[in-house]
Write a protein that binds this DNA or RNA. Structure first.
Lengths: 211, 211
DNA sequence: AGCTGAGTTAAACGTTCGTTTGAATCGAAC
DNA sequence: GTTCGATTCAAACGAACGTTTAACTCAGCT
């Protein structure tokens, strides 16, 4: 087996530590120690700690938004008007993938996303791949067709709710004190619970106008 | 008007800065500078930065859980078996209160709660008032009666979903680039959207057992 | 006037941080 | 064998951090 080079060793260590302790709670020294690399390797390979975070974030989010995009493509190839349940599954499902079995990397990447998205450090919000916006807008349009009569702002609110439920659940799974490693069935159960929870929520009739 | 003493001036400044930049992103010097107090005042009045965070968290969360508890009391005094919609309103409503009008303090406290709850720093999770557990368990029991046939674990998942939706929505409202101050109608709209979204989600039929 | 104790102050403590430096090391090309 | 670019290394840089110290202020009391 080819041993990984320093660059990916640093990426792996940073992914783990950023997920556990956040951006500000992780020192470059802790990353290079865990990676078995020299302190200056971060500066050499990535330029700065903030650019290292951007590289970690891109590596983690790329397969997820790719799966979301592919899922929507499949759906639209089968029918021009997918149901709310199908859209929820295609959108929220990839956020749960990579999780199951003893492998803890799935839970870690989920937690990493949440940690990055909720990190108050401005460095944690500046990486912005261009693709996740377009896939979000495509789903927005599909949901708008599946939910006629729903005001655009309320639809936006509900789509944020999807991200909220999936993200916070993953954090909770990761944080639970006992049984640190969720079993495969637990991960699959959470996925199914989230789908039913969110499908019902998205399918709710529009809120009547105020007053 | 009585000018506030140093202790509350520090509490106010810390609440604002913790909400904006998180625990690790806020220095004691920044707090005392904003409060117009001396650097050593934090150590004198609170002991340490971590204990200051605990004091801020308690001051913010106490009225919210008090309102949640009072709302449940009112509900149970009226009927022994409240509906899911009533329970959602009583539980999630106080998380939206204090928000409206040009006053930005409501949005700030909401963001503070989210920032603290999601902060990876261990100091941010150690304050734990004893009351919020009991009120959570009381709502759990009430929801269990209103939703017979729902497995306890799935019910727990759904209650976490309530917190997730309300919390993340508030962050998004606070973070929006344009129109930094949400108007009263926007705050009230978000509250009503959340109630319908969450009522539908909580009322979903139980997920069928896996396989 | 003199003492007391809570509160404030400037200054410094030791530590950790992200980053930079310049030399050492290595395999491949010539 | 020598040169070269890429990589790794130990060491140090200055800045910022949380905390502590000891002197100082000042109202309230005897």
């Amino acid at each position: 087996m080819a041993l990984p080079d320093t660059r990916t060793k640093i990426l792996d260590a940073a992914e783990r530590l950023f997920a556990e302790h956040g951006y500000r709670g992780t020192s470059v020294r802790a990353i290079t120690d865990l990676a078995g690399a020299n302190l200056a390797a971060v500066g050499y390979h990535f330029g700065s700690k903030a650019e290292l975070l951007a590289a970690v974030a891109r590596r983690v989010t790329e397969p997820i938004i790719a799966a979301q995009s592919a899922g929507l493509d499949e759906l639209l190839a089968r029918t021009p008007d997918p149901s709310v349940a199908e859209l929820v599954e295609a959108f929220a499902g990839p956020l749960f993938d990579g999780m199951p079995a003893g492998d803890e990397s799935g839970a870690r990447t989920s937690r990493l996303i949440v940690t990055i998205l909720s990190d108050p450090a401005e460095e944690a919000r500046s990486w912005t791949g261009p693709d996740e916006d377009t896939v979000g807008e495509r789903y927005l349009a599909a949901f708008a067709r599946a939910l006629p009569g729903l005001a655009p702002q309320e639809l936006l609110f509900r789509m944020r709710g999807i991200l909220a439920v999936t993200a916070v659940d993953r954090v909770e799974v990761y944080n639970r004190p006992s049984a640190a490693c969720p079993t495969a069935t637990e991960g699959e159960e959470a996925r199914r619970w989230a789908i039913t929870f969110l499908t019902a929520a998205m399918s709710a009739p529009p809120t009547r106008a105020w007053r």
